[in-house]
Amino acid sequence: MAPRFKTLALGATPLLLAGCSGELSTLDPAGPRAANLAVLWWVMLAGSVLLFAIVMVLFALAYLRTAWVTRITPAQWIIGGGLVLPIPVLVLLTGTALVLGEQLLPRGNAPIRIEAHAERWLWTFTYPDGHAVPDQTLHMPAGQPVDIVVTAEDVIHAFWVPRLGGKIDAIPGHTNVVRLEADKPGVYWGQCAEYCGEGHDGMQFRVEAHTTEEFAALMQGASH
């Protein structure tokens, strides 16, 4: 399933306006999970443009008093426009989104679990076996799914690396998990998405995806 979405995403790439790329852009995905979400967006956008056009054209035709529009009966307006048009679209879309949502759940155990702990206004990352890397950067291996275990110290924050996947809230008293994956090694950016007070603006963090070997080496060298 995932590779097919990826080809779709690649196919959609030429559509991207130059302005859509960016270090925090959801439209510039850098991993299969974010790519799925971007495809969902482009599909919904196309459908929406079509539906919007239909409504606007009908509204215009009502005023132009085109003959066939004036002949549409009340029942046809209500049943055609109100039921036949939206119901299949909505059922199909919601069904697809739910299936996709199931696939994106962090099910089973990903090989690597990294803890992200939010407090006003910084993130602390802890690696398997209690390793810590003291540079305010989330290190992760590229090319494989990674589970991020998100918790909060004080108020609600949200963990969001737009190019690698969706966001999840960091809520005091709760533990949430989000699964991310980067296609290639590189530097990505993340930020706090839930308003958390005066320092909310500055709560961004660096994400560095490494090759598997580099990541293993980094963990070796990390302090306990």
């Binding site: 509204f59 035709l61 008093r65 529009v69 004036t70 549409i72 307006w77 426009g81 109100g82 119901i87």
Partner: peptide, 23 residues
Amino acid sequence: ALVAIPTAVQIFAWIGTLASGRP
């Protein structure tokens, strides 16, 4: 998602009213 359906019913009732009247 479903709440869009009663909304659509109203939208098309309004457009239909205009279309079948003398707007």
